[in-house]
Design a protein around this nucleic acid. Structure first.
Lengths: 147, 147
DNA sequence: CTGAAAATGAATGTGATTTTCAATTTCATT
DNA sequence: AATGAAATTGAAAATCACATTCATTTTCAG
């Protein structure tokens, strides 16, 4: 079994919460970690299914929620359908509305400006979303690049 | 008929797009402009209905899409249901996940940082969303204020 | 090995949004 | 004012993503 660090993290989370360690959860985590990028539940289900035909959509769906709770995955919603990415350092996204490409970026200055603004309203920030939608470099140079 | 400036803007948009000027559209725009804040389609439908009992949900729904296209309204989606606000200067949102309060803020520094980042990727930004979710000052001081 | 608790997955429910379509309305042109 | 093509309306139904139900199966502590 690959991804031993993550598998162990999942195992620890399950134990700490009196949840059970099943083949399905292990398999779904494995496939998820191999799938690069920002994958939808449906796509992940297809990927899982090609390797483990007996695993149902519901289990994939529930397992992704579980992985989010366990801190192994993050859920995003750019266009009305949830997408999952492997948990890593905090970052925001540039989303190309033509080709669907997603670029990650980080900006310490924006982070601190956010905190300053929230503080000025006495607001306690628990999470945030910051997404820039537009056209990536490739999609601008290809035809139909106006508007 | 109140809101003459906006009504005229709608009329111009309809004309330019060979669409028709109906009582329903006029009435919905009117009620929308009176409703303060960030209103859902459903709430707007109720508000419209109390004054114009014959107008159906579908028409309200479609008219709000139309007003967005005409640039008179903006659609936001903080929690899975669309909300509409009167179009005005660009701003971002602080959303209280306890009481639902929505605070608007602007930050020139963040805007320019965004543009700088996008430019570094050759990305052309058409729109963006920037939302901070957490607890407002009131909800922090009231009971249950932990976690 | 056993049984209580948890997990699975097919089917179904949910809630918001979107589409369909027959009847009605608008409006440029007679 | 009358005409009729094109757009609009609105009730009902369809869609879409997400969430839950429940009978069956699996896990795992004792």
């Amino acid at each position: 079994m690959a991804h031993e660090v993550e598998q162990r993290a999942l195992a620890r989370y399950l134990e700490e919460h009196s949840l059970k360690h099943t083949k399905q959860r292990e398999a779904i985590l494995d496939v998820f970690l191999e799938a690069k990028g920002h994958i939808t539940s449906e796509d992940l289900y297809q990927a899982v299914r090609s390797r483990h035909a007996q695993i149902g959509y519901t289990t994939v769906y529930r397992t992704m929620k579980l992985l989010c709770e366990a801190g192994l995955a993050h859920e995003h919603n750019f266009d009305g359908t949830a997408r999952y990415e492997i948990a890593h350092e905090h970052h925001d996204h540039l989303v190309c509305t033509r080709c669907g490409k997603i670029i990650e970026f980080e900006c310490e200055m924006i982070e601190s400006a956010q905190n300053r603004i929230a503080a000025s309203y006495g607001f306690r920030v628990l999470r945030h979303r910051h997404e820039l939608y537009g056209h990536c470099a490739e999609c601008q140079t290809s035809r139909h690049s106006d508007s």
